[in-house]
């Protein structure tokens, strides 16, 4: 039971992060290319073209969404966990490059929701995602029924992704909330 809880928590958290990051990059693909161009100057010419078209951001976004959705069915969670670990390794490597090169451009990791640069946060999140592969490998035998896993992971991922989305866009969410309150108050006055 404890194994199942750890597995659910780990996979739901990873899927929530990847869903938010992936969808945001599909909507706003350009910043990631710009940040990569900054931290990988050796490949600047190639990255210049790709950054302008947003191809890098879109590719990363699709990979993240596929990995996130792959963690949900019990039958695909192991390959998805390996893909997530590979993505995590890439995040950590880029975070290290950003830290070493003192990156100043927003990475667009969560689209336009944050102005964060490639750095320590990417390293921490990346390394946490790398741990997902061994976690899934260890918990495979002890995780219990597939149906129980799928029911719980979908609900947990939905909840986690929604909370993370609201936190990332907390300013917009607060503004929307204040706007609704103002409209309601005006309605009461009239």
């Amino acid at each position: 039971m404890a194994d199942l809880i750890v597995l659910l928590a780990g996979n739901a958290a990873a899927a929530s992060v990847l869903l938010n990051a992936g969808v945001a990059k599909l909507v706003s693909p350009v910043p990631l290319g710009r940040a990569l161009r900054e931290v990988l100057p050796a490949h600047r010419q190639v990255l210049d073209r790709l950054a302008r078209s947003g191809a890098i951001g879109r590719f990363a976004g699709v990979a993240e969404v596929i990995a996130a959705l792959g963690l949900l069915p019990a039958t695909t969670r192991m390959p998805a966990a390996i893909a997530t670990a590979v993505l995590g390794g890439a995040f950590a490597a880029l975070g290290t490059a950003g830290l070493l090169r003192r990156s100043v451009k927003p990475c667009g990791c969560f689209g336009m929701a944050s102005n964060q640069r490639l750095g320590a946060t990417n390293i921490v999140v990346g390394l946490a995602l790398v741990l997902l592969a061994p976690l899934n490998a260890v918990a495979t035998a002890a995780a219990g029924s597939e149906a129980g896993y799928e029911q719980a992971i979908v609900m947990l991922t939905s909840l986690g992704a929604l909370l993370l989305c609201l936190w990332l866009h907390r300013r917009a969410a607060r503004n929307a909330w204040n706007l609704m309150r103002t409209i309601r108050q005006r309605g009461e006055v009239q």
């Binding site: 969808v23 945001a24 929701a113 929604l162 989305c165 990332l168 917009a172």
Partner: peptide, 22 residues
């Protein structure tokens, strides 16, 4: 659960588009 997940993804898309537009 999957209907809920689709709704959550739609919400994420909506917020991401709002951020991009702003």
């Amino acid at each position: 659960g999957f209907v809920l997940l689709v709704l959550v993804i739609a919400t994420i898309v909506l917020f991401a588009m709002m951020a991009e537009l702003s």
